[in-house]
Design a protein around this nucleic acid. Structure first.
Lengths: 216, 216
DNA sequence: AGTTGATGTTACCAAGCGGTAACCTTAACG
DNA sequence: CGTTAAGGTTACCGCTTGGTAACATCAACT
């Protein structure tokens, strides 16, 4: 039987990191701070300085051990077959966007992390985190780029931005215009809109290609 | 000739409000605060409390006298002819989105206001501001709704969200994936993507309508 | 001229923040 | 057993924040 030692660095660090997530999720970006985390973890804040070297180190450690997006991208990438028929690509993109939407919605701490980033963009750390996500995201795009003529990077960046913003605001507002953000029905409207956009793009692209072929 | 009085409430309030915009634009959301504004305006902070009743009142006054989006919506709405041919509607929507993009990019204080809102969503004030924008936005949608089957509200909300998020991040990052946010070329890619999305939707909708007609 | 009320200033407060020095306390080791 | 170093705690610091009370000053009007 395992004895829980009272003096155990591993355990303490774990508790701090957990508290970090909790605090971010519960109290929001603004109130997140070393003091709040320490209090929440039931741990002396000095330990945070010792183990993580302060707020930045803590945040970094927190991100490193579980920032979901890069993992999510990698996982998604795996699930995509290598030789994907062109006509299915729009579906893959909309599936990616929608899965991202769902995962992001489900992860409060990740949302708050992004929110934090948005108000601390001048800091080196915030930039690095964004950069990190960007890379993993680029991997995905490189392998999946479908509508070559349609600047898939720009389009998907727009879609991901849209989803990001909507999820973030949903934590603060009940609705956008007449879209109810508290109900699944509201989010289904959004998901449907996403699918429609991608499928329309595909249709339009097909038509353009058909025209080109005709000219030849 | 007009004499500038040293004791002049109007003037002082004006200076405070200007300073408010400057501070928001320059130092960002985080550092914006009563103290910073007072210092910047070269005015004693007590006056802010007297004239505006504190931070909330100041913010509200600031917004009320010039929050651009509702005005922008109204202006745009005026410019749209009443009997708009259906085939031009996608163009109107993309024009709206793109003009919004440009205006929003040009207005640093407005950006910072939104950023502030994102981190203070729990407050009553933030909610009210959002609500205010929403109403003016809904007016627009009501009058313009084109693709009736395509849930134009959801689609345009997505697009506006996308633009909002991208502009906000552009203040902090040089690029998204390989889109250079510092150059006009980068933003043109985004504008093009927006146009493509709307026009594709139109094409897809046309095709669907054609099919329906065929069945009849 | 003198009262009065608006305008502007000084000085202060409590609370919260990030951060650190110095101190105990325990586990593990020879 | 006793030393040692890591784990954990106490108490403090300086700084900034939002907020207020009390005082000084000027302009206008009877």
């Amino acid at each position: 039987m395992k004895v829980v030692k009272r003096r155990n660095r591993q355990m303490t660090m774990e508790r701090i990191l957990r508290a970090m997530g909790d605090v971010m999720a519960e109290r929001g970006t603004e109130k997140a701070g070393i003091n709040a985390v320490a209090e929440r973890a039931g741990v002396n804040k000095v330990l945070i300085y010792r183990y993580f070297g302060g707020w930045n180190g803590l945040l970094e450690a927190y991100v490193q051990r579980g920032f979901f997006l890069s993992m999510f991208n990698d996982k998604f990438l795996e699930s995509v077959p290598d030789n994907l028929p062109a006509e299915n690509r729009s579906k893959v993109w909309s599936e990616y966007t929608i899965q991202f939407l769902r995962e992001f919605r489900a992860r409060k701490p990740s949302q708050e992390l992004i929110r934090w980033e948005m108000t601390h963009g001048e800091t080196e750390l915030a930039r690095r985190l964004a950069e990190y996500r960007d890379r993993s995201y680029k991997n995905l795009v490189d392998k999946l780029a479908p509508y070559t003529d349609f600047d898939p990077i720009a389009i998907t960046s727009l879609m991901v931005s849209a989803v990001t913003y909507m999820v973030l605001t949903s934590a603060q507002r009940d609705h956008i215009v007449d879209i109810d953000l508290r109900t699944e029905a509201g989010w289904e409207r959004i998901e449907t809109a996403i699918r429609r956009i991608y499928s329309s793009l595909n249709i339009a692209l097909d038509r353009e290609n058909a025209k080109k072929a005709e000219v030849k």
